[in-house]
Design a protein around this nucleic acid. Structure first.
Length: 816
RNA sequence: GCGAGAGUGGCGGAACUGGCAGACGCGCUAGACUUAGGAUCUAGUACCUCCGGGUGUGGGGGUUCGACUCCCCCCUCUCGCACCA
């Protein structure tokens, strides 16, 4: 008997699959289509890491299973090839990003083939290819034409290390999502996509997708819809009005001061001469405070009086206007009406600066005297003019109606979601297809002018300006409208723009005339199963939905959600810790592929734990799977050397039952991505076949049952260990690929034993196990149970108070 | 601080709508085969035990004939959000 020669066999089948184009999907045939997609990776110079494998391996297992079920599976692969690492590498090592990226992709592809996945490599996409980014630019123009792309000057997030601006989503806890450097603010004119126009549609669509609840919640929180009112306060002795957004218009009579964000444009206008110095100092100081500090809830609130007063529109009271950095310019109107009695933040501020606190919502309708803290619950309105006595939750709507009638306010829905900042001051991205003309201003290029090619010749240097500016041939151009001299936009697009539509490109990756073919994508999309990390919840997954919805609204496609089903694989840890370069605990797959082969490696990853939870890597654990694959190999060898030739029917019954039972369990487990338990079931099946073959001489072994079990085993194993199963399939005389064979079916009746072990409990404690026929009347069951000597021992001399019989399962006797 | 999820042998992890806790694997113990074993095969393996049994799913209470599973309180860990007016 031999050891499984995985190295040679894996290579052999990868070659044959490739030659036979076994996994090239026929896109023209969309009947029974199944689009299975993994989030495409950035092709870094490092080798494939364990996270890649953990995303790709199990997904491929699932895709192969679906193929065997008869689906026309499309499992494409590509490269999210634009991005900072290549450019940083160019600065450091002098290698052009185009060259290093091409090199990396080549290496990546080789490694990807070693996984032995079912990818249709003939339909690869590469976002840095002009044939691809031409269409990324087309998307920009499409959004621009429809008023969904605009340029504006704004204080934006700036990463000093990456030397570029970042979208809000890319700032985590005030730090750069990519390099963890603390993010600062910069005033820059930048391009934005108007994703806020789609806030409502992005929320609505959540009901129509099968996504992890947690991811949907994250998107909902990120979009942050809140209902309330917009109310106008006039400024005393001035023409100016201050608009505020509030979710509590019912507390309007409790306003004792107003607060503007320090950066608010009105600050400069409203500040009085006496207060000017104090205000300027404060504004200056708050600019220096980082966002993390500024948004820390623990921080003591600070602020300065502007010197001006606002007039409360409902009672004409004059209230002082302050500025304070706990008010954010970017949310709502950048101004708040402060109601210290009913808002914890305003309460803290008012207490500190000795501002009046006026109760207008009371728990019982009576004044409560001096408040010790803000009362934020529902209560009864008091000190509120005509609304006195109204329940505060009902008051919200009534006050809004009242304000609307008087023309001083209206109902309003606000979102936390901000527009998506897409410009980046970097080279290695898709150029934004716009020019600046002295005469015509901002001019978008015509579709015929695309692609705007990235020039090869630029100076890579640090400094916070796009390297594209260094190439005069690129920079200087002519205006497509007037033909006069113009300068090109030198910023490039956020790589999330490239990845917002790649799933549309795969089915028609070669199309020259458009980004995608309407008919093709309408047939093949939405993606049936999308699998990737949870970290993209509020970035890629939100942007891609936005793109899809825009295309739908403009009539390009007939679906408005790109990913029907979404699954997030968990994270692999090492001794309970997250793997990271800085911890130095990263497990490289390479050594294990060499020692055990890719089938064993991928199967061990699936066996470690539940796919959604991830698992803890152990160098020792993989030997269990290695033994298993070898055990399968030896078992099949044994059956070939000593073929069963009898028709024994006693012991084979259990083997037959296990064959059906395993099929049922593995099928159910695969449907739910429960790879770990599916593999356990396969191990049990192998153990059962083994025992049978060892217990019964080959000339008695039931030839039909054994060959059915062995064949079923290979079919069930195929998605998990594709190379091994394919080889054994060929060795057992099959001419065609196992992946053209059908998934085995099971007979539910045959998964069950003839008898069951009836559990007998006495006072809830298990005292006996009695073998029993199914479906017997309770009386008979009890009779049998009470006759058992182990039961008698515990019941003797006692009174039976209660007899509980759970059919075909258990008996519980309550005795005293 | 708020929200969500989790806590099970020496280890990774199983357990469907409440019904034999610990499937499967690692490790460990003993045996078989071997010149050899880091190969393979067989058996055992939660803990305690006076061998009758007793105790066990983070801790404490509760519901139930019966709780890893449901309810309440507390502890720990992970993730997400974090002055959003």
């Amino acid at each position: 008997m031999s050891a499984y020669p995985f190295a040679e066999i894996e290579k052999k089948w990868q070659r044959i699959w490739d030659e036979k184009k076994l996994f090239q999907t026929d896109i023209s045939d969309a009947d029974n289509k199944l689009y299975v997609l993994v989030m495409f990776p950035y092709p870094s110079g490092d080798r494939l890491h364990i996270g890649h494998w953990y995303n790709f391996g199990p997904t491929d297992t699932w895709a192969r299973y679906k193929r065997m079920l008869g689906y026309n599976v499309f499992e494409p692969f590509g490269y999210d090839a634009f991005g900072l690492p290549a450019e940083n590498y160019a600065i450091k090592m002098g290698v052009h990003p185009a060259d290093s990226t091409a090199e990396n992709i080549k290496k990546f592809r080789e490694q990807m083939k070693a996984i032995g996945a079912m990818y249709d490599f003939s339909k690869e996409v590469n976002t840095s290819d002009p044939e691809y980014y031409k269409w990324t630019q087309w998307f920009f123009l499409m959004l621009f034409k429809n008023g969904l792309a605009y340029r504006k000057k704004a204080p934006v997030n700036w990463c000093p290390s990456c030397e570029t601006v970042l979208a809000n989503e890319q700032v985590h806890d005030g730090h750069c999502e990519r390099c963890d450097t603390e993010v600062t603010k910069k005033d820059l004119a930048q391009w934005f996509f108007k994703i806020t126009d789609y806030a409502e549609k992005l929320l609505e669509g959540h009901d129509r997708v099968n996504w992890p609840e947690k991811t949907i919640t994250m998107q909902k929180n990120w979009i942050g819809r809140s209902e309330g009112a917009q109310i106008n306060f006039t400024v005393a002795d001035s023409q100016d009005t201050i608009q505020v957004f509030t979710t509590r218009p019912d507390t309007l009579w409790g306003v004792t001061y107003m607060v503007l964000a320090p950066e608010h444009p009105l600050v400069e206008k409203l500040v009085t001469d006496e207060q000017r110095k104090a205000v300027n100092d404060y504004v200056e100081q708050s600019r220096r405070v980082s966002d993390i500090d500024r948004t820390s809830t623990e921080r003591v609130k600070t602020g300065v009086f502007l010197g001006a007063y606002a007039i409360n529109p409902v009672n004409s009271e004059q209230v002082p206007i302050w500025i304070a950095d706990y008010v954010l310019l970017t949310y709502g109107t950048g101004c708040v009406m402060a109601v210290p009695a009913h808002d914890t933040r305003d309460f803290a501020f008012a207490t500190k600066y000795d501002l009046p606190i006026r109760e207008v919502i009371s728990p019982n309708g009576q004044p409560s005297g001096e408040l010790q803290e803000a009362f934020t619950n529902v209560g009864v309105m008091i000190n509120s003019g005509i609304f006195n006595g109204t329940r505060s939750d009902e008051g919200i709507g009534k006050v809004i109606a009242h304000l609307a009638e008087k023309g001083i306010g209206e109902s309003k829905i606000n979102y936390k979601l901000r527009d998506w900042l897409i410009s980046r001051q970097r080279y290695w991205g898709a150029p934004i297809p716009v020019v600046y003309c002295d005469k015509c201003g901002i001019v978008a290029l015509k579709e015929d002018d695309l692609p705007v090619l990235l020039p090869r010749d630029v100076v890579f240097k640090k400094g916070g300006e796009s390297p594209l500016k260094s190439n005069p041939n690129f920079l200087n151009t002519t205006c497509p409208d007037c033909g006069g001299p113009a300068k090109r936009e030198v910023d490039t697009m956020d790589t999330f723009v490239c990845s917002s539509w790649y799933y549309l490109r795969y089915p028609n990756h070669n199309l020259k005339t458009a980004a995608f073919d309407k008919e093709t994508v309408n047939k093949w999309l939405p993606v049936d199963q999308y699998i990737g990390g949870a970290e993209h919840a509020t970035m890629h997954l939100l942007y891609a939905r936005f793109f899809t919805k825009v295309l739908y609204d403009l009539g390009f496609i007939n679906f408005d959600e790109p990913f029907k089903n979404l699954f997030h694989q968990g994270v692999i840890t090492r001794e309970g810790n997250k793997m990271s370069k800085s911890r130095g605990n990263v497990v490289s797959p390479d050594k294990f592929i060499v020692d055990y082969g890719s089938d064993t490696f991928r199967m061990y990853m699936m066996f470690m734990g539940n796919y959604a939870d991830g698992g803890d890597w152990s160098d020792d654990g993989i030997v269990g799977i290695d033994r298993f694959t070898n055990r399968v190999w030896r078992l099949m060898e044994m059956l070939q050397e000593n073929p069963p030739s009898g028709n024994e029917s006693e012991k084979s019954k259990e083997l037959e039952r296990v064959r059906h039972y395993t099929t049922k369990m593995v099928t159910n487990d695969l449907d739910r991505f429960n790879f770990n338990t599916a593999i356990s079931r396969l191990m049990e099946m192998v153990n059962t076949i083994y025992s049978y073959v060892q217990d019964v001489p080959s000339n008695e072994q039931n030839k039909l049952v054994v060959s059915d079990a062995a064949e079923t085993l290979l079919l069930l194993l195929a998605p998990f260990a594709p190379h091994l199963a394919e080889e054994l399939w060929a060795r057992t005389g099959h001419g065609d690929s196992i992946f053209n064979a059908s998934w085995p079916i099971f007979d539910d009746m045959k998964t069950m034993k003839n008898t069951y072990q009836c559990v007998v409990q006495i006072n809830g404690k298990v005292r006996a196990n009695i073998e029993m026929e199914f479906d017997q009347p309770d009386v008979i069951v009890l009779e049998t149970v009470l006759a058992d000597e182990r039961v008698i021992r515990h019941v003797d001399g006692k009174q039976i108070l209660k007899k509980i019989v759970v059919k075909n399962k258990l008996v519980n006797l309550v005795v005293k």
